[in-house]
Amino acid sequence: MTGLQTRLELADVRAAADRIAAQVRRTPLLALDALPGLLLKAEHLQHSGSFKVRGAANAMAGAGAGEIVTGSSGNHGIAVARNGRALGVPVTVVMAAGASADKERVIRSLGAQVVRVDGGVAERERQALAHARRTGALLVPSSDHELVVAGQGTVGLEIFEEAPEVDTVFVPTGGGGLLAGICLAARAARHPVRIIGVEPAGANRYARSLAAGRPVSVPPSTTVADGLRGQRPGAVPFPIVQERVDALVDVTDQAIVRAMRLLHRAGVPAEPSGSVALAGALSWAGRPLRGGRVAVVVSGGNTPGALAAGPGGRPPEGPARPTRG
Results as ranks from 00 to 15, higher is better:
E271Q: 09
V169Q: 05
G234L: 03
I20S: 10
I196Y: 02
T70E: 13
M1C: 03
Q231W: 01
A186M: 07
L263T: 09
I195W: 02
S273Y: 06
A17K: 15
K103M: 02
M60K: 06
H264I: 11
R190A: 15
E199P: 09
P192W: 09
A279G: 06
G66S: 15
A112C: 06
G318L: 05
L307A: 07
D33L: 01
R261L: 09
T173H: 07
A150H: 14
E243V: 00
R293Q: 12
I196E: 03
A65C: 05
E123V: 14
Q242Y: 10
A295V: 03
A63K: 00
P215M: 06
G156C: 13
G120M: 09
P36D: 11
L8D: 13
P192T: 10
G291M: 06
R293K: 13
I240A: 10
L138S: 11
G176W: 02
P315Y: 03
R14Q: 15
V218N: 04
V268M: 01
A320G: 09
A201K: 09
V53H: 00
P141K: 12
R290F: 07
L38P: 00
V148G: 09
A132E: 05
K41A: 04
A96H: 11
G3S: 10
H131A: 02
A122T: 08
G280A: 13
R321I: 03
A15D: 14
A65E: 05
L138E: 11
R194N: 01
V106P: 03
E199R: 07
K103F: 01
E165Y: 00
S143D: 09
G305S: 11
L87T: 05
E67S: 14
R187M: 04
G267N: 11
I78W: 04
G234T: 04
Q254F: 00
G274K: 05
I68H: 03
E243M: 03
A185C: 12
V91P: 13
G88R: 07
Q46D: 06
R82V: 06
P322R: 12
A97W: 02
T252E: 06
R244E: 10
T92G: 02
Q113I: 01
G230R: 00
P36K: 12
P192V: 09
V91E: 14
E161Q: 15
I20F: 09
T92L: 13
P172K: 02
L138V: 07
V257R: 10
I195D: 02
H44C: 10
E243Q: 15
E43N: 04
D226A: 12
G153H: 07
E146Q: 14
I195E: 03
V297T: 02
G55S: 12
T92R: 14
Y206G: 01
G291H: 07
P220R: 08
R187Q: 15
N83S: 04
R314W: 08
E104S: 10
L307D: 06
L157Q: 12
L4N: 08
A56D: 12
G111L: 11
R190W: 00
A97R: 14
S73R: 00
A207P: 01
G3V: 06
G111T: 11
A57N: 13
